[in-house]
Amino acid sequence: MREPEFQDRYEGGRVLADHLRRHARQPGTLVLALPRGGVPVGAEVARKLGVPLDVFLVRKLGTPGHEELAMGAIASGGVRVLNREVVNELNIGREQIEAAARREAVELQRREESYREGRPPPNVRGRTVLLVDDGLATGTTMRAAVAALRLLEPAAIIVAVPVAAAESCESLAQVADEVICVRMPEPFYSVGLWYRDFAQTEDDEVRALLAEATREGAASEAQPSA
């Protein structure tokens, strides 16, 4: 078994930022991190690149009786995507879909309110979005995030992670405009194995990182241009 690739998510974010240098201080570029583990990574990327940070919340819609199987997802901005293949194959009715969506919407709304603390979600239309997480195992959540984000009409979606399973990176390349996977160790097993410290990211940490990024962005805008 190889040694972990990164000390923690913050180091993963700094290394990832080095692979995204061409986006540094580019107008219209935005980092959207997937909570919760993606936020420390995204915070370092945004800080090093000098671009805004926000979160993009995704909640999987589990198939009735087989909750681990996604029949779709809901996301920030009131977006909903359905996996029509799963819905049709399992003959899932509209009422079942609506019930699952209502349940997940409650948690999504709770997190939106908790993390943003009154700040409105960003307008991504026409912008280059760096969609960041701490890693990709199956890539299911990230695929749902890309599909949902696409409906909000960004100019480009770049999936970026410090570590991932190679097959997940290849799969996501079919739906994202670009995929940056810094490390693709084999065998992969799980994301957490490649961090020495993979302690759960708590809501307080997410709020603090977002608030700090907002303050830094406001301070930067307030500085007179050269």
Rank of each mutant, 00 (worst) to 15 (best):
V86W: 09
A17W: 02
Y189E: 13
E104Q: 15
E202S: 14
M71C: 05
L69R: 10
E216I: 10
T141I: 09
A101S: 13
E112N: 05
A70D: 09
A17D: 00
E216W: 07
T201E: 10
P27R: 08
I74N: 02
V45P: 02
V132D: 05
S114H: 08
F198N: 04
A101G: 01
E112Y: 09
V51M: 00
H19P: 00
V163M: 12
V39M: 02
H66Q: 12
D54A: 03
T138F: 12
V206Q: 01
A173Y: 05
L61S: 02
L53W: 07
E112L: 13
R21W: 04
N123P: 00
E202I: 13
Y10T: 12
E212M: 11
A165T: 07
A33T: 07
V39I: 12
Q174I: 12
V129L: 07
E3K: 05
P187A: 15
F188P: 03
G62T: 05
R21A: 12
A211H: 14
L61K: 03
L57K: 02
R183A: 15
L149I: 12
R150M: 08
G42K: 09
L151R: 15
Y10N: 00
D18P: 00
V87L: 13
R14K: 12
A218W: 10
A226Q: 08
Q7I: 05
E167A: 15
Y10D: 01
Q96M: 09
P35I: 03
G93V: 04
L172H: 06
P35H: 06
Q200L: 11
V45G: 01
N83P: 07
V179Y: 07
V175Y: 12
V124H: 03
L149A: 07
P187C: 14
K48H: 03
T128A: 06
A213C: 10
L30I: 13
E95L: 10
R127S: 08
A101Y: 03
G62Y: 03
M1F: 00
A99Y: 07
E11I: 04
T214N: 09
G135M: 03
V31F: 06
A105I: 02
L209A: 11
E113M: 08
M1K: 04
G135P: 00
G126I: 14
A176F: 06
E212K: 15
V87K: 02
R84E: 14
D177C: 14
M184D: 11
S225C: 13
G13I: 03
H66I: 08
L30R: 03
G217A: 14
R116K: 06
P27F: 06
L61D: 03
V206N: 01
R150S: 14
V159N: 06
E167Q: 15
V179D: 07
R47E: 14
F198G: 02
N123G: 08
F6P: 06
F198I: 10
D197F: 13
R36V: 04
L82Y: 08
A208Q: 15
P154F: 10
P4W: 01
L20I: 02
L152T: 11
L172I: 11
